[in-house]
Design a protein around this nucleic acid. Sequence first.
DNA 1: AAGAATCGTAATATCAGAAGTTACATGAGA
DNA 2: TCTCATGTAACTTCTGATATTACGATTCTT
Lengths: 156, 156
Amino acid sequence: MRHDSRLSSVLHALLHMAEADRPLTSETLALCMSTHPVVVRRTMAGLREAGFVRSGKGPSGGWTLACDLNAVTLRQVHEALGEPAIFAIGKRSERPDCLVEQAVNAVLDDAFAAAEALLLDRFGQVTLAMLAAEFSRRHAGVARSPLAPTKDDSHV
Amino acid sequence: MRHDSRLSSVLHALLHMAEADRPLTSETLALCMSTHPVVVRRTMAGLREAGFVRSGKGPSGGWTLACDLNAVTLRQVHEALGEPAIFAIGKRSERPDCLVEQAVNAVLDDAFAAAEALLLDRFGQVTLAMLAAEFSRRHAGVARSPLAPTKDDSHV
DNA sequence: AAGAATCGTAATATCAGAAGTTACATGAGA
DNA sequence: TCTCATGTAACTTCTGATATTACGATTCTT
């Protein structure tokens, strides 16, 4: 299965938008993320509907943030994308006649449900502001030592 | 992405083998799982290498269990399948130059690693014997009441 | 008003990986 | 020897994300 990288993509875009002081075009964002402008528009559509970003047409148009970075969690972003499937592993059939398969599915469902709950809970605890802070931390660190790690980096 | 149902499939097969008192052919197992015999052979190959099952050729050949159901966990089965990818969601690039993307990836990696650890831990606690017991429980329940649930089923 | 920049979106193509299928070789038993 | 069954390579099909093309709609500038 091919990986669904939409969450990673839009978070990347949101952070770039947070750094910028003017609207960023789909083309600009597509260059950042080495993808296609239409993919950017399509993916960001969900975030616009959720009210996290705004898009403007015409010259000086583009994408701008429309939310408080402290108020939006990764979970909300995931939901804005339409809650895409999290797992690549699944069941053969949803409603099997075979009791053996039902038993297997029941046990697997439990485990996957627990893992999904944990993941979504984590996502719910991370705000965009925390992501931005993580970026700042790295930015400072790498500016200090781009290739040769110093002692300060050793415990990171 | 299409779901990878190999784990579900082989567990199903293993439980059928546990119920049987003679080797089951790939054809028989394929019928149970509504798939193709070659897919069964291909998928079971990993379990054979791990020593969980044996396969015999010729007439009276087929697949037999070669392990103690109490000694094999879902995690071991997952590993025998080659530890296929668990998540359908992933990163756009593994080693991005962009510090923003690095920050995003770092945070996402943490969350996914935690969820994966939880899932594998759960898998490590479930033995094939427990799966078989779950089947027996269901078998008893449904034999008692195939279509019209009784009071006894109401709290299941 | 004209023209350019930019988004919105439908339609289509590409790509990757699991699953399905075919083909043929190998080994075991009657 | 003949048949049954696995082993495996090669190829096809299927599915969903991603990539691309095309065209329409809106906004800004001149």
